[in-house]
Amino acid sequence: MLAIVCPGQGAQKPGFLTPWRELPGVEELLGSLSEPARIDLLRHGTESDADTIRDTAVAQPLLVAAGIVAASQLRSEEDLPAADVLAGHSVGELTAAALGGVLSDEDAMRLVAVRSRAMATAAAAEPTSMAAVVGGTREDVLAAIERHGLHPANINSAAQVVAAGSAEKIAALGEDGPAKARVIPLQVAGAFHTPYMAAAREELAAFAPTLSPADPTLPLVSNAGGEVVTSGALYLDAIVTQVASPVDWEACMATFRDRGVTAMIEVAPAGTLTGLAKRELKGIALANLNTPDDLEAARALVREHAGLAPSDQEA
């Protein structure tokens, strides 16, 4: 049983699309995606520095495009079985929407262009930030976040919650955090996935009717509590709501566990979500699809695990 997962903002690295451009058709694909994205994806993915691609309006389209490119190369072998389930973390849900057939590649890029700019504008309205709280007990961590007037924006695992809110309150959390936990400030532009993003949610809600979602070709696991979504319209609704609501990736991993997922492939730029799975989903096979050199191993993993429940593997 195979899951393909798509990373969220923060996973991008300077030059991470460079190895992919050498493959036939990739430059053309990035060129075709750049117009609806409203940025030069090839230039930013191969030449721009870390500060440039940290910009929300650049990072988010790059991440969605990178996932589309990596997945298209993975599936370029016609006999490759389909995955059993898809999921994305935060903006990775737009990548998953494209991979799962809910949105065309072009519409996914149109949507991420609006999303990224709306979130950047909302973030600029007042000084806000985010910090990862690692360790401690869930009860103590959530209590400390609430005590400081912050929001749990990302529930990434049993040992990691990302707090978000005003920059001043994030600094206070760092000085007076929960017991046995580390508070690590994140280099992000604002308090994503909190009520601070209400204006961005409204802008997305106004844009969404211009899209024509289809029902997914594969089950999609939503950041909203790990629910398995089989309606394209409902998945698009969840994407709109998600910008001002918490990302519950821990619940997504619980759904993988409940469905008997035996392997996970993370599309480029990979490593964050497989890292969480390594700690939370003991025993499953993991692969990072970061460069074309990773394609052979990833395809082998697909053939070994797609459509297989744990009992099938043991037989």
Rank of each mutant, 00 (worst) to 15 (best):
L2I: 06
V5L: 06
C6L: 10
G10C: 13
F16C: 12
T18I: 06
P19S: 15
P19R: 13
W20E: 04
W20A: 07
E22N: 11
L23T: 08
L23A: 14
V26F: 10
E28L: 11
S32F: 00
L33H: 13
L41A: 02
I53N: 05
R54L: 02
R54G: 10
L62S: 10
L62C: 11
V69G: 06
Q73G: 01
Q73D: 00
Q73Y: 01
L74A: 12
L74C: 11
R75N: 09
P81G: 03
A82N: 04
A82H: 10
A82I: 01
A83E: 08
L86E: 10
H89P: 03
S90G: 13
S90Q: 06
V91S: 01
L94N: 01
T95R: 05
G101I: 03
G101N: 09
A108V: 11
S116K: 03
S116T: 05
M119F: 10
A125Q: 15
P127H: 07
S129D: 08
M130H: 05
V133W: 03
E139W: 03
A144R: 04
H148L: 08
A158T: 14
V161W: 09
V162T: 09
A164D: 05
E168S: 13
L173K: 03
G177T: 08
A181S: 15
R182H: 11
P185N: 11
T194L: 07
M197R: 00
E202T: 12
A205M: 00
A205N: 02
L211C: 05
L211P: 00
S212C: 04
D215G: 13
L218C: 01
N223L: 02
A224S: 11
A224Q: 10
A233C: 00
A238E: 08
S245K: 10
P246Q: 08
C252P: 04
R257E: 14
D258Q: 15
G260H: 06
A263E: 02
P269I: 08
G271Y: 05
G271I: 03
T274R: 09
G275F: 13
L281D: 04
L281V: 05
K282L: 14
L286G: 09
N290Y: 09
P292G: 12
A300M: 01
L301M: 15
L301V: 06
R303G: 01
L308G: 00
P310D: 04
